[in-house]
Simulated scan of single mutants.
Amino acid sequence: MSRKRGELPPLPEALPTPVVDAHTHLDACGAKTAGDVKGYLDRANLAGVDRVITVGDDLASARWAAEAATWDPRVFAAVAVHPTRTTGFGDADKAELAELARQPRVVAVGETGLDYYWDYSSKEDQHEAFRWHIRLSKDVDKPLMIHDREAHDDVLEILDREGAPSTVVFHCFSGDLDFARRCVDRGFVLSFAGPVTFKNSHDLREAARWTPDEHLLVETDAPFLTPHPFRGQPNEPYCVNYTLRDLATLRDTEVDLLASTVTQNAERVFNLRN
C-alpha cells in the first residue's frame, strides 16, 4: 500500500450477506492509485463488504473520488466541500463541484453541513456553502450527505428553510433519540459509524436501537472512528463488518437480516449500479 500504518484490526469472518460501506475516505486511508483501491476493496470483500462510497471533503479529494469510482466497479463517489473547508468557497469551486456531481459514478452530494466543534470556517461561510450544496443536490437529483457536528438544530433549520432534497443521509449520525425522531419524521436516513459501538455512547446507541429499518445505513468513515474494541487503530472499509455485527446485537436481530436490510437501503438510497 502507499503509506505506513499502525496495526490494523484483524480481518473478521465474512458477513453472510454482503454490505455497503456507505461513507469512507479511501484517499485518506492511503489509496492513491487504481492498484491501491483494488487492494482496499479486495480486503473488504473478504469481510463481506462488497461496495463502498468514497467521499471527497475538498476539491482535490472530490476530483480523486470521482476518478477512483471509475477504476473499480465496487467503488462509488460523493463530492462536496466539507463545512470546515468552506472559507473562500467561490464560484470557480462551485462550478467544478457541480460538474463532478453530475458524473454517473458520483452518487451523492456530500459531505456537507455544519461543524461547530472546529473553528476553521465561520458559521456564515458554512451556512452559505450548505445552502448551495442543498440546491446542488436538488439540481442533480442525487442524495445529500450531511456532516453534522454539534449543530443539530441549525442543520434542520436550514434544511427546512431551503427545502430538503428528496433524499437526505445523516452521515455518522451523532444525535440522541429525540434528534433521531426529528430526522426520521422528515424522512431522512441515518448512517451509523464506529461510535455507535462505543459502550459509553448511551444516547447514540438508544437512537440506533430505535431507528426504523428503512432509515438505517452503516459506514466506517475510515480512516477515522474505528469501531470497538479497536478504537484508536487504523480503520478501513472492511471494519464496517464489526459495526454491523454490534448493531445487530444492539437491535436484537440476526446479522444476516440486518446486513440484507442495510444493503437494500444503500442500493435504494444511492441508486447503486455497476
Rank of each mutant, 00 (worst) to 15 (best):
E236Q: 09
N265L: 11
V184G: 01
V196F: 14
K138G: 06
T167M: 01
L159S: 00
R251E: 13
G48A: 14
M1C: 09
E214M: 07
Y116Q: 06
R135P: 02
Y238D: 08
F170R: 00
A77S: 03
I158H: 02
N274K: 04
L247Y: 06
Q233C: 14
Y120Q: 14
Q103F: 07
E206F: 14
M145R: 05
K94R: 12
K94D: 02
R131V: 04
I134C: 11
G56Y: 12
R63T: 09
S191I: 05
F188H: 03
S166G: 13
P234I: 01
A62W: 00
L144A: 06
F270C: 08
L159K: 00
T17G: 10
T253W: 06
Q126R: 10
K142F: 12
K138V: 08
H147C: 08
N200R: 13
L258W: 03
D91L: 14
V168Q: 02
K138N: 01
R5V: 13
L244Y: 04
E236F: 02
R105Q: 07
V20N: 09
Q126P: 06
I53D: 04
R102N: 12
I134A: 05
F89A: 08
H127S: 13
D72N: 07
T167G: 00
H82N: 03
L156R: 05
H25V: 01
D139F: 07
V79D: 05
H215P: 05
R161C: 03
D221V: 00
A60N: 12
L257D: 11
F270P: 03
Y116L: 09
H171V: 02
L114M: 14
L272Q: 01
L217N: 12
F270Y: 05
A34Q: 03
T84E: 15
D36V: 08
V19I: 15
C239W: 08
V37Y: 05
P165H: 07
S166R: 13
D185F: 05
T249M: 12
L156D: 08
H127T: 15
S137I: 02
L250N: 11
D93M: 11
T86L: 01
G113V: 12
R245Q: 15
A80D: 04
E157Q: 12
S61L: 08
A34S: 11
V109P: 03
P223K: 10
R105M: 07
P229W: 07
Y120A: 08
R74D: 05
D160W: 14
D42M: 00
P165L: 07
F230M: 13
E124N: 13
P12F: 06
A193P: 11
P9I: 08
V169Y: 00
D185L: 04
N265P: 12
T253F: 14
A77L: 06
G56T: 06
L177T: 11
F224T: 00
A62C: 09
P165M: 07
P16A: 08
K138H: 04
A77M: 07
D154F: 14
Y120F: 15
Y238K: 06
H25W: 11
E236G: 12
V240Q: 04
A65K: 02
Q264N: 10
A44S: 14
Y40V: 06
H202Y: 09
K4M: 15
